[in-house]
Design a protein around this nucleic acid. Structure first.
Lengths: 185, 185
DNA sequence: CCGCGACTATACAGACCGGTCTAGTAAAAA
DNA sequence: TTTTTACTAGACCGGTCTGTATAGTCGCGG
């Protein structure tokens, strides 16, 4: 087996970055190739399923990375309330550093991708995040951890949307503050 | 002043319906005209600013309509908790009836419109909603009504995103249930 | 050193995009 | 009736979109 380079992986990473900024329809394939300095001839070699496959895999990749980050945040914090506050602070810092250019890599794609394959990939990523959060809340002895985790996930996604649109991180901190009393382990 | 028909208004209404389904980049101008049976020659007569203006005005229109609905919901309910539960039930019913095809008319556009004019129109709509919610919470004697209203708005937007993506209204009800203890006037 | 498989360059198809233009119709105003 | 204004029909522009087809180049195993 010759070569095996990292083009495929770099394509995915570039795609993640662009999709979370411009959304599914707002991101062109040429744009992805240009932004990543990627070979133009190999896109349909690595992703025979075209844009749909590229987006689905990008979502899956970003979902797995964030899943790890969420897990670590809960492991590191003393209480779920602390974990949420930590996470919101990090998200706020990243959003500010990026000049409010990007959104959640899953949510941004989920909201305007018509393809069912992409939709399913987003749903899967969300489900994994929910599972991690729910388990952490359960470990902290909170009742109805499942419902609470769904609400937290909703609030965080919505806060990212609002914060980006308003160019102001207030919503992220508002969510952390509001949920704090509900998340005291 | 001759004629003055309703073409402009019908164009806007059709645009609202399509933008909330396919997003900004996912919706084509031809598509809007075709879906509404609208005259092709008059788009740039009524909207010389092109797609950008059309989207901005559509967002503003939808924002105003929802603002009224939110106001009425809070006026009708005994407590803010009841109002939220009511609103979530209505959103869930509408989403189910539409077979999970649409999202929030503002959020869906806000997340992928690059134009600053459209972004500002979305921010304005969100600000109006926030203002209505915050005032209602304040009237019910809740402290930190402003922060709480921001969190509620975030959660509702996020829940709509998740519900649509999962094709399942659970997130909407989870938000209502989770916020209930915080919204007992 | 040959061949095969992994990978890339390049050209291009066909559709659709947002947007512009000109010519024309219809109704109210003068 | 003539003029002015409101509005529409429909062709058309250049550009970009996703996706395909073909001809390569590169690097290792044999």
């Amino acid at each position: 087996m010759p070569r095996r380079n990292d083009t495929r992986d770099r394509t995915l990473r570039t795609a993640v970055d662009l999709f979370r900024v411009h959304g599914y329809h707002g991101t062109g394939l040429n744009q992805v190739l240009a932004a990543g300095g990627l070979p133009k001839g190999s896109l349909y070699f690595h992703f025979p399923g075209g844009k749909e496959q590229l987006a689905a895999e990008a979502v899956t990749m970003a979902g797995a990375e964030f899943r790890t980050r969420i897990t670590e945040t809960f492991d590191r914090a003393a209480t779920p309330a602390d974990a949420l506050a930590d996470a919101m602070r990090v998200l706020a810092d990243e959003l500010t550093a990026a000049d409010f250019a990007h959104g959640c890599p899953i949510g941004t794609v989920a909201i305007d991708a018509d393809s069912d394959r992409v939709r399913a990939a987003c749903a899967d990523a969300f489900a994994q995040w929910h599972s991690v959060i729910s388990a952490a809340l359960h470990r902290s002895g909170l009742s109805n951890a499942d419902t609470l985790a769904t609400a937290v996930l909703s609030a965080v996604e919505g806060a990212q949307l609002l914060a980006r649109n308003r160019r102001d991180t207030t919503p992220l901190y508002a969510v952390a503050e509001t949920f704090a009393p509900l998340l005291k382990g």
